[in-house]
């Protein structure tokens, strides 16, 4: 079982209390009506599918209920860090020396 640190509870807790919620830092377009179909496809469906460090959302659904973000290595399943929703993406390379998989052209 994975152990996940909830940044709101301040505790490292069993995976069974959490739900995975997809890739993190995907901003909803500010002006939806101005989006082209291709842009909507990109926003709705296209994900980076990283082999390496992945930034992803989790929800502590059977605990405090909060969504937060995590950086997890998709090969080893190791959580490098977790941080509160709304906080900037941490510099993983500086923290761990591992290059994070960020899709080209992404913010």
């Amino acid at each position: 079982m994975l152990l996940i640190h909830c940044p709101y509870c301040g505790e490292t807790l069993p995976e069974t209390e959490f739900a995975y919620a997809g890739e993190a830092h995907i901003a909803r377009p500010e002006n939806p009506s101005e989006q082209t179909d291709a842009e909507w496809v990109e926003y709705l469906f296209m994900r980076s599918n990283v082999k390496g460090v992945h930034f992803e959302r989790w929800r502590h659904i059977h605990g405090c209920g909060r969504f937060f973000n995590a950086a997890r290595h998709t090969v080893t399943d190791k959580f490098l860090t977790t941080y509160k929703a709304g906080e900037p993406r941490p510099d993983i390379e500086a923290l761990t020396g591992i290059k994070a998989g960020v899709k080209e052209g992404e913010k």
């Binding site: 079982m1 509870c9 069993p14 069974t16 209390e17 059977h62 605990g63 209920g65």
Partner: peptide, 22 residues
Amino acid sequence: VARDLSRIGPGQGARTVFDGTP
């Protein structure tokens, strides 16, 4: 409970899962 119970002291508590039950 899969939590570390020693982290919950007297007078403390949490919402968690017990054998699959919230």
